[in-house]
Design a protein around this nucleic acid. Structure first.
Lengths: 77, 77
DNA sequence: GCAGCCTATCCCAAAATGGGATAATCCGAA
DNA sequence: TTCGGATTATCCCATTTTGGGATAGGCTGC
């Protein structure tokens, strides 16, 4: 795992994405499908193996049917 | 430039960051200093030569003294 | 234990990054 | 217009990250 992805903020970020996906009752496979990517893509960003850039993040929150700002606000500082 | 960074949304994203920095009267060097990074870092993400992940984005908006959500909302779809 | 679903990991060629150094541009003053 | 400092873009290239199909590993209920 890239070490830049080990910060506490990143950890919280990932935890949010994961719990949000589960709360929506979606599998990695289903999210992957919405994103037009393989399941390994979702597994990797959720596992911190790969980072999400800003535009990708918006795509993911759209797939999760969620407001991106809500996630960001929980990461402030 | 990585081709993943050529989408219209990304272009708008970059344009926002740049105009925001200028509006605040800051140079790349000054932003870089706040971020604890070299000027080339700022030059690269502004130029689309490098992507910003979500946490880095928050750092940048903090350096620009700006609300990240405002930028995101202008990128929706 | 087995079946089925879900998630993590492998592999490694290809692509992206880091950052100091340096080139190129911009811009106001003389 | 020319000069010079300030600002931004580009070089270089070793190191790090990524892409994604295949496959291993886990978990749950039966």
């Amino acid at each position: 795992m890239p070490k830049s992805l080990r910060s506490p903020r990143h950890q919280r970020f990932l935890a949010q994405l994961i719990s949000l996906r589960k709360a929506k009752g979606l599998t990695q496979e289903q999210v992957a499908e919405k994103l037009g990517r393989p399941q390994s893509f979702v597994a990797k960003y959720e596992g911190g193996e790969r980072r999400l850039d800003v535009v990708e993040f918006l795509d993911v929150t759209a797939a999760l049917d969620t407001d991106p700002c809500e996630i960001l606000s929980s990461l402030q500082l």
